[in-house]
Structure formats: C-alpha cells, structure tokens
Design a protein around this nucleic acid. Structure first.
Length: 556
RNA sequence: GUCCCAGUAGCUCAGCUGGAUAGAGCAACGGCCUUCUAAGCCGUGGGUCACGGGUUCGAAUCCCCUCUGGGACACCA
C-alpha cells in the first residue's frame, strides 16, 4: 500500500469510528466512506460527504451531523492539522503534509516500478486488438485501436493484473481468397495482360506494390501454374508479405504483442470442430434450410446466427467462437476485445455464443473504438479499404510522428468519436500537449545534469522537510496519486486518465520551475531536497509516458 | 424500424458508479527572458452542460420523452 493510501485508509477508519461514537448510525449501517481530493485547495486535502450520506439514516440535517461527527473525531490521529465543515455538510480535512516527503525516497527506490500496485490481484486478462485482416496496410482506425490496446495492456500489467496482448490473424476466410484473386489480377496487369479486380476485391495500392514485387521476383513464371496451386501461391505470398508489413508498422508504432494467433491454426488443431461439437452436444444448434444455426437469440441476440452455410463452409463467426473458447481454455479470467465501431453488432452474438458454451458472458468485455474522422485540407476524408483511399498508419507516423499520434489517441476516451485534423496536427505540432509533457521531462533532465556537482558533494545531506512550499506540496501530492490513477484507470479501462494526469503533473512542474530556483548555492540542503524532488517527478513522468508509448526526450 | 456512440466555451475535448463556484488545450486579450531550456509562467474574458420532464438534501452526471449528427443491423469479415 502506498503512503497516500495508508493516510487515506487511516482517515476513513477514524471517520467511521467517529460516526459510531457519535451515535449517528450502527456500525453496519455506516456507508462506505468516500474521501475525495477537492478541486479547490481551499476545501482541504481531503473532503468527506459522510454527513450527507447519513442524512436519511440519522434523520438529521447534514450540517448538524457533520458537527457531531467532528466533535467525536480523534484529531490526534491521521496527520490532521485542521477540520472544517463547509457547504451543505462537507467535512474538509487539512493535513500537516509532512508525510508526503516520505514519498521521495519511496519513488527513487521504486524507479521504473513506481506506480505499480497489486490492485488487479493477478487476474489473468487477454487483450485482443487490431486483428486486422492481412489484406492490406493498416490505416488510421487500426492505429487508434493499436494505441488503445497497447496502452490498456501496459496499464493493466502495471496495476497488478496479468495481461497478455494478442493479435488474431484472419488467414483462413473468404477475405483471403479475395486477396489472392485481387493479387493475381494486379500481377497480370503488371505483366501487361488484361485483368479485372473482382467487385469485392481489394483495390489498395499496397496490392499493386506486392504485384510489382512478385514480377521482380518471379517474372511471369506463376501464370503457367495450375489454378489451385496458383491461388495458393498468391494467398501465401500475400498473407506473408502483408503480415510482415503490419508487424513492422505496429513495431514502429511501439505496439507489442505477446502472441500472433492464426485462424488457420484453429483448423489444423481441430479446435473449430471441437467447439462446434460442444455446441451441438449442448443442444444449442439446429438445422434449417440446410444450414446449421446457433440459438443466440436465447441469450439476448436479435436473431439466431448461421455457423455452417448451405454450401458447407463456415461463417466467420464459427472459428471466432472457437478462438474465444480457446482463450478461456488457456486460463484467462477475463477477455477484452478491442473492436472498431463497425463491429459493435457482433457483441451480443459473441456474448451469446460464450453463454451457450457455458461461460459467463460478463467475462468478455468488448471495448469499442469509435470511428476516427480524418480531416485534410479542411475536408473530411472518407476512408475505405476497398477503394484504397484510406490514410495509412505509416503515413500517420511519418506526418504526425509516433509520440504525438500515440498521445493523441490515448488522450481521448476510446468510445467516443475522434476528429483528427491532420493539417493541424502537422502544422501546429509544437502546440500539441505531448510536447508540454515531454518538455517538463527535458527540463528536469537538464537541471539534473547541472546538479551533478552538487550531488557529488557528500558533506551536506538533503533535508526533505524543507519542502513545504505550496508548489512543492502540490507536486508531492500529485506524485503520490500516481499509483491510484494507474489502478483506477486500469479498473475502468479508461486510458485517457493517464495523459490527463501527465499533463497535470507537467503543469505543476512548469509552475514550480518558474516560481522557484532548484539549484541555489546559498542553500545547499534545500537545493539537494529539490533535486531529489525533481528526480521523483522525472521518474513519474517517464513511467506515465511509457504506459502510453511516448518517448521521454533528454533534451528538446 | 431496432441497436450503439455522441451533443458541455468560438474550435477540439475532459468531467458522467450524483457532491461545493462545470474544467483543460487551441483561438482572443494583457504582462514576464542580464538568473537552472520562453516548446515555459502569471493574469483577463468567454457557458441555457441540445430540449422538456422525473428521481432527491443535491443532477452535466441516474431515468423517460423529443430533436440533431455519426455508425451498425448478411448463409461478408
């Protein structure tokens, strides 16, 4: 438990004692104590709304309750400097804040690990994200999903969960056949022959690139092969090269996966049949119109869904079910699917399928990533993979930069729409908040370099108790909050709290920097204490930036 | 038609498991560099939290209605 949590915990205990001691409620009636850090510093370090919560139970006016509660509160405990009652019945606690200086050695000691907690209690979570079909390059929407999924994983692990990142490669379905046919058409075109891309084929320029590569590598030797072999060749060549491109893009975007899971492998290991058999055995399927259906409507879906089509082939849904089953079978307690908004209709049917298999549908969480609207030259760019007009993730990285893009995606709650003004991001890139945070880091680093002489002087010890200025206390409090922010953000799957926290911490740092001099030769003990504080801020900024995949520059 | 997301400052968005005077960035305006990085700081102005009702000590937050925008509703994936 962190220092701040200990202090809060003690305060909560004392409040509860006071409530009982004042006879306001029986011990089992006392609501859970809510302590919040008020926005306004004039409202103390922590505020409790207990008096309002008790209004109904004690049948008294909140302010009266607050008075009785405070009268029975043991002020000697819990670093209390002052207690006041305010507003409709808030009880505001002002602490002596000396405990905050203990944070500095704790943070320096923890280093990279600062911010970590056991909040997740080792719960095993599988986060599946991106999982784009290997039929082209990744685009802007994938980039958002990649940023969100990657940060989510890192966040969960930091908060004490055991999270794994996984990418499901759809290398078995129809889309891949379309890919093969499209690639063949481009290949023939390159060789000067007449060929047309089928209607639902892929028109992207990456396919043209691939065809060019094919010609360079194999000349026209593929044309003469028999059809089956030819198509298999195009499939394999396409998937291999496009997956390679996808992996490179993701790696350059600083997104890492623990496992790349192939759909084809599900067939090879007969897991699709096995899952189907379970569903059949449980009586969850039926045949109609010579197709096999799953009774998803019994579990909240709008209608039943087809598992095996009239032509005998599986729908995309069937291997997907077996993949999800496999995730549970591998011992994960919770599954998180990060999906694009266009797949949201898929949620009820997958949850239904899980239920039909006998799992708890609540153990599957689907995090929907809403659409990214790209604006270029003041106009909305319509994105479509089919027409090949999409802005690629590669272009995004080259134009905007990885740091800015990652920060931008992490900054907004993933389930709301995002307008991405490319022109603004490029032309005003210096005004992007990511630089504000990075600048704070670079500033500290620069100071610490100048402080090396001071540090080598061992004759004077730092005196952390000198850190009592308003801006120093402000920084310390924010540093202390970091583990709770991480834990809370992980529990809510709300990554946007991290950039928001970083911005806030950077703001406090800049404010402090402009008001106080860290390196003061006339006051070595204070300077040393401030250097220690700066080191703690630096560690915390770095750890936060790591979570969202943003680099911490030594200088700017 | 059904479902999902959204509607908060001029713009882009936080805040949403109910709390005090609704926040931030950008844009606008006024100050601060002989001193550790001015990619910074300090200050000012800016709001019918889409509309209407309900729940209660208290609603941007929860519930219902309406309006507006986007998306999804295949034996495609």
């Amino acid at each position: 438990m962190t220092i701040v949590e200990q202090v809060k915990q003690q305060l909560k205990e004392e409040i509860k004692h006071a409530v009982v001691k004042a006879g306001l409620a029986e011990p089992e009636q006392v609501p859970e104590v809510v302590l919040e850090a008020p926005k306004d510093k004039a409202h103390g370090d922590f505020a409790a709304n207990m008096a309002m919560q008790l209004a109904r139970i004690a049948k008294k006016a909140p302010r009266k309750i607050a008075e009785e509660l405070v009268a029975n509160f043991d002020k000697k405990k819990g670093h209390i400097r002052e207690i006041e009652i305010a507003g409709p019945g808030f009880i505001n606690f002002f602490l002596d804040n000396q405990y905050l200086t203990d944070l500095i050695p704790a943070i320096l000691e923890a280093g990279d690990a600062y911010g970590a907690s056991e909040a997740g209690a080792g719960k095993k979570i599988l986060v599946e994200f991106v999982s784009a079909n290997p039929t082209g390059s990744l685009h802007l929407g994938h980039a958002r999903g990649a940023a969100v999924g990657d940060t989510l994983c890192k966040l969960l692990n930091k908060a004490g969960y055991q999270a794994s990142a996984e990418y499901y490669i759809n290398d078995g379905g129809n889309q891949i056949s379309n890919l093969a046919v499209s690639l063949e058409a481009r290949y023939r075109q390159k060789l000067g022959a007449e060929a047309e891309i089928p209607e639902n084929g892929y028109h992207g320029k990456d396919i043209i690139e691939l065809a060019k590569q094919l010609v360079a590598q194999y000349g026209d030797s593929i044309i003469s092969k028999p059809e089956e072999e030819r198509l298999r060749f195009f499939r394999n060549f396409g998937v291999e090269h496009l997956m390679h491109g996808i992996k490179t893009d993701l790696a350059d975007f600083r997104v890492t996966f623990d496992r790349w899971y192939s759909e084809l492998s599900l067939y090879e290991t007969h897991k699709v049949e096995a899952a189907l058999q379970v569903l059949k055995d449980k009586g969850e399927t039926y045949e109609k119109d010579s197709a096999l259906w799953l009774k998803t409507s019994e579990y909240g879906d709008d209608k039943d869904r087809v598992l095996i089509k009239t032509d005998g082939s599986y729908t995309y849904f069937t291997p997907d079910i077996s993949y999800h089953k496999d995730k549970f079978d591998r011992g994960f307690d919770q599954l998180i699917d990060v999906l694009g908004a266009d797949h949201h209709g898929y949620v009820p049917r997958m949850k239904a399928a899980m239920q039909a298999l006998g799992y708890n549908p609540d153990d599957l969480t689907v995090q929907i990533i809403q659409l990214v609207n790209l604006f270029k030259d003041g106009e909305k760019v319509k994105m479509s993979k089919r027409t090949g007009k999409a802005v690629t993730m590669r272009e995004l990285m080259e134009d905007v930069g990885v740091d800015a893009a990652r920060y931008f995606f992490a900054m907004r709650s993933s389930d709301s729409h995002l307008d991405f003004d490319l022109d603004l991001a490029i032309s005003h890139s210096n005004e992007n908040p990511v630089y504000y945070v990075q600048y704070a880091y670079a500033r500290i680093t620069s100071m610490l370099k100048k402080a090396e002489d001071l540090e080598s002087d061992q004759t004077v010890a730092p005196d952390l108790s000198l850190l009592t200025g308003e801006k120093e206390i402000d920084l310390l409090k924010k540093l202390g909050n970091f583990p709770a922010i991480v834990a809370d953000s992980a529990a809510k799957l709300a990554i946007q709290h991290i950039p928001s926290y970083l911005f806030d911490l950077a703001s406090s740092l800049h404010s402090f920097y402009n008001a106080e001099k860290v390196l003061d030769e006339g006051n070595i003990p204070l300077s040393k204490a401030r250097v220690a504080l700066m080191k703690a801020v630096r560690i915390t900024l770095k750890n936060g930036m790591d979570l969202i995949g943003v680099h911490a520059p030594e200088k700017m």
